[in-house]
Design a protein around this nucleic acid. Structure first.
Lengths: 94, 94
DNA sequence: AACATTTGGTTTATTTTATAAACTACTTTA
DNA sequence: TAAAGTAGTTTATAAAATAAACCAAATGTT
């Protein structure tokens, strides 16, 4: 009945980030911050965790002369997200 | 897009408890512990939080001579759960 | 040119949460 | 009557979320 919920994904902000990334080719730091209404500090920390888990790739470059951090979901991240949603269904009855 | 997730419900164990209680008339401590595979300590704490939030009612009585704690979901709890599931849908795309 | 402000972040510190371990009180069994 | 089990609670610790402070470079203001 109750499968374990991946604790890395069972976090409001990280889940929101993954939810965005699963639907787009890529998204940069500023876009993610705006969409999630998170503070930069919090977002920075959570992006780091997702990257370390291998769920997203993070590419730090420049847009003109300003820094720009671009994130993409990985295949591994996509799998983890799918599994999480599946597990969650057992809790919320879908 | 991203509604806030009620932090009281966005917890694996509390969510499991609510998930059980929403489907039954009542459930006692032991049943909840068995179904969720939680430790008694953890379950005790989380039940307390749900009760303090008004999401469940907790009735401590006896079954024969052994103590027995019975939990029931409240209307308020049912509403909160429904709202949580609705908000969650925005994250997992249902 | 000099200074303040904004941008795009990171690092550090604090609060909150989850969880386990230890404990209490009572009951049943040998 | 001693040992073990049941049903929990309380306390301590580890992990997580979040905010606040900070940094470096860019841009706007006088």
């Amino acid at each position: 009945m109750f499968k374990e919920l991946n604790p890395l994904l069972h976090s409001e902000l990280r889940l929101a980030v993954m939810s965005i990334l699963i639907g787009v080719e890529e998204a940069d730091f500023v876009y993610l911050r705006e969409q999630t209404h998170a503070t930069a500090g919090n977002l920075s920390v959570q992006i780091d965790k997702l990257q370390k888990a291998g769920y997203i790739s993070v590419e730090k470059g420049f847009k003109g002369r300003m820094p720009r951090t671009v994130c993409r979901i990985t295949d591994c991240g996509r799998d983890a997200f799918t599994e999480y949603v599946d597990a969650l269904s057992g809790y919320i009855g879908r």
